[in-house]
């Protein structure tokens, strides 16, 4: 009793970091496409991405459990590939978190790309910038607020997830026992002191990160008018 239990903290930070990296890599091209496409299937994709916002985590967790389980299509493939199950493993948690936090990354990115619009990219093209060049030199820096928001929301949302993790990951120390699960268990076993330490820690951490972001946003030179 009383000693600080760091395992779940590290695991949560690891999970959030990996998840955000995957999300930014997958979400950027998707958000770019959504921002500029004239395709008719755009609303379908947008609705799919927004689903995790409205579904109870248990519904998502339930289907993920079936999909990722050794009998499910993705799970079976994973077992053939790595000889281990996806469910109740860290990799499984990453997949679940990516899907669960998808809208929190894609939507801010899409909004900020739309905010940048075609105009500066056209200007860049007339100045000799190829599309990829224009993306890195113009669109990304201009959408920097979107990237910051996406990263922070994706990270903190993954840190705070509970239902999906519980259903797909369970509670295996060192592998799937993240902060929120640990807090839940401490409360269940009436170890309020431990629950306090983790909860307060998470609260202070989240507040500091958000505060830092808002201060940084104010300081961006081109955001001051």
């Amino acid at each position: 009793m009383g000693s600080l239990e760091l395992g779940p903290v590290w695991l949560s930070l690891q999970l959030a970091t990996v998840t955000v990296i995957v999300l930014l890599l997958v979400g950027t091209p998707l958000a770019w496409w959504l921002a500029y496409t004239r395709s008719r299937i755009k609303p379908v994709i947008e609705a799919l991405i927004a689903l995790p916002l409205v579904l109870p985590p248990t519904v998502l967790g339930f289907y993920l459990l079936i999909l990722l389980g050794p009998a499910g299509p993705i799970g079976r493939f994973w077992v053939q590939l790595t000889d281990s199950a996806l469910t109740f493993s860290f990799s499984g948690l990453v997949i679940a978190s990516v899907i669960y936090s998808f809208p929190f990354v894609v939507q801010p990115l899409q909004n900020s790309f739309q905010g940048v619009g075609r105009a500066p990219l056209e200007a860049a093209a007339t100045l000799g910038a190829k599309p990829l060049d224009a993306f890195f030199s113009i669109a990304s820096p201009m959408a920097v607020r979107g990237y910051i928001t996406a990263t922070i929301l994706g990270f903190t949302h993954t840190l705070g997830e509970f239902g999906v993790v519980l259903m797909v990951g369970g509670n295996i120390p060192g592998s799937t026992r993240v902060i929120s699960i640990a807090i839940y268990e401490h409360v269940e076993t009436l170890s309020y002191e431990q629950a306090h330490i983790l909860s307060l820690g998470l609260l202070i951490f989240s507040f500091s990160v958000l505060l830092g972001v808002y201060i940084f946003n104010r300081r961006l030179p081109f955001n001051r008018i």
Binding site: A119, P120, E122, A123, A124, P141, M142, F222
Partner: peptide, 8 residues
Amino acid sequence: QDGRLFSH
């Protein structure tokens, strides 16, 4: 018409 300078 609107200049389109890069604001960043």
